[in-house]
Write a protein that binds this DNA or RNA. Structure first.
Lengths: 284, 284
DNA sequence: GGAATTACCTGACTAAAGTCAGATACATGA
DNA sequence: TCATGTATCTGACTTTAGTCAGGTAATTCC
């Protein structure tokens, strides 16, 4: 991996030079680029760029403003915040950056045959998925948190199992069993969006795993097992020696994953009408 | 590819931060690192780092010297040149950079299963090879040039190895037929080292391709065909409508490549005792 | 042997990138 | 309503990274 880094950065890292040649220094161009990508507030920008100094960002926004590339406006919902947006000229500049970057990528790929390009693409896509997967962090969140709500929303939508009320404004309500002190909810996020979730709670004296969900585009990256290990550790911490869970027959990969993780089939232990398969595992 | 860049640099690019935390600025650390990697002269350093300003490098060497990390010495074989080397302290610093970098890579790979790590490795190795291949430049050089000599050295060493004859170390002399105005020699280089070579000359009124060689670790990256196209174009430029070449039965991949490139088998046209197969192609 | 070239150095500069210490206006919770 | 906190801005800095124009000693070419 380190070898790759060195040679890749040396060759393609020059891709960042495409930011230059636009008349803007690198930092300023990055800001312009992120705005075009959807950053809406100054704060948003700062976090996207990895926590830059606020004064520094402010100054760069000022130069972009004076060049007529971005417009700043007070946020009506919070007067301290400022909204950033590209002007027409700014959009033109952004397109220019895009085009330049695209061109450079083409230039690089030019000497390769189509077959080689395809191979490169595949390799990079694989690497990307794995690197993303490796840098995902699994964090405990309150199930009422918007991230948790979004994850559950996608979980329920996918399972085709709707609650009595509509998904949206009021969310999935608040199931206290999924929170401290007798439960926990975890969300795995990448780039600020939930990509997997899961919960532990207590049920009839033992641990129970609920709401296991992995974003379809992330399946096969080992995220499910990682999350499962997390949930088991949490169940142990909550004092359980056994966890149980239910799932349904159509979720084949999930069932396989549970089996690989050492879960054994048991008889039905609850009255969930949607579940067909039941598992248990001794922890520790 | 651009997508990969963005997400990769965001996550792993931080790998370069490992240069920081060493108390040295990035540029200076890079110099230290390259010396540890084997750069021996100031010139060597400059080319490895992509042609930095000589004054700039000199200054950085001075700070490294004053910190006691590197020692500079006159080159006995050329008094203008200076030899650079790490001191004991410098070596310690270098190890530290290595360790830090290694640690960071491990931290990233930690959450992955062994199977995933292997997949990532494969993907990165493939991407690396292809990106390297794409950024190789094929340049005409004089066959007396050190690069050409090195390439030919390896070419002869290899066929010598395989076919059991040796070439003296008096060099390959100067075969004027491989130079202008009736011939040309090409070297493909990556990171300053020759990875492939080939020549065109005139023989009995038609073009002839000689000295086709591709570094073993580079085979299968399409370099041979690229070089061959180059040589054909050159032959055409030199006024030939036909090129011929000879090769040997054990070089299977080479023979396949020639066939794919549109070469047809012909009868022996010279008295090269090592050749067994003969080809020709009409150009244009 | 003298001119040209090469390898490196020095000094004087610039722009970019980033830090730090306040200042200011707005927001929020007790 | 007051203390506290937040989002942004301003000004005064520093460090990096890099450029450019000469200069010196050694080497090569003719």
């Amino acid at each position: 991996m380190r070898k790759f880094n060195m040679s890749y950065v040396r060759r393609v890292g020059a891709l960042e030079d495409s930011f230059l040649g636009s008349g803007l220094p690198y930092g300023t161009a990055r800001i312009l680029y992120e705005i075009g990508l959807g950053a809406e507030t100054v704060q948003d920008l700062r976090t996207r760029l990895g926590g830059l100094d606020s004064g520094y960002v402010s100054r760069m926004l000022r130069t972009l403003e004076s060049k007529g590339y971005v417009a700043l406006d007070r946020d009506p919902s919070d007067g301290r915040r400022r909204l950033v947006a590209l002007t027409e000229d700014g959009l033109k500049q952004w397109d220019d950056l895009e085009r330049r970057s695209e061109e450079r990528a083409h230039l690089l790929l030019d000497p390769l045959t189509q077959r080689q390009r395809d191979r490169l693409n595949d390799a990079l896509a694989t690497a990307d998925l794995l690197v993303r997967a490796a840098t995902i962090v699994i964090d405990p969140v309150d199930p009422r948190d918007p991230m948790a709500q979004e994850a559950m929303g996608r979980y329920f939508a996918e399972i085709g199992d709707r609650f009595g009320f509509t998904v949206g404004d009021e969310g999935f309500g608040d199931d206290p069993s999924l929170r401290a002190p007798r439960g926990a909810f975890f969300v795995a996020a990448s780039d600020g969006a939930p990509v997997a979730s899961g919960a532990v709670r207590e049920f009839e004296g033992t641990g129970e795993i609920k709401r296991m969900w992995v974003d379809p585009s992330w399946r096969g990256a080992g995220l499910g097992s990682r999350l499962l290990r997390h949930l088991e550790a949490e169940a142990l911490r909550l004092g359980h020696r056994v966890v149980r869970l239910d799932t349904r027959d159509v979720l084949n990969e999930a069932i396989e994953m549970y089996e690989r993780a050492g879960y054994e089939r048991i008889d039905r232990y609850n009255d969930n009408p949607h579940a067909t398969h039941f598992f248990r595992k001794e922890l520790g």
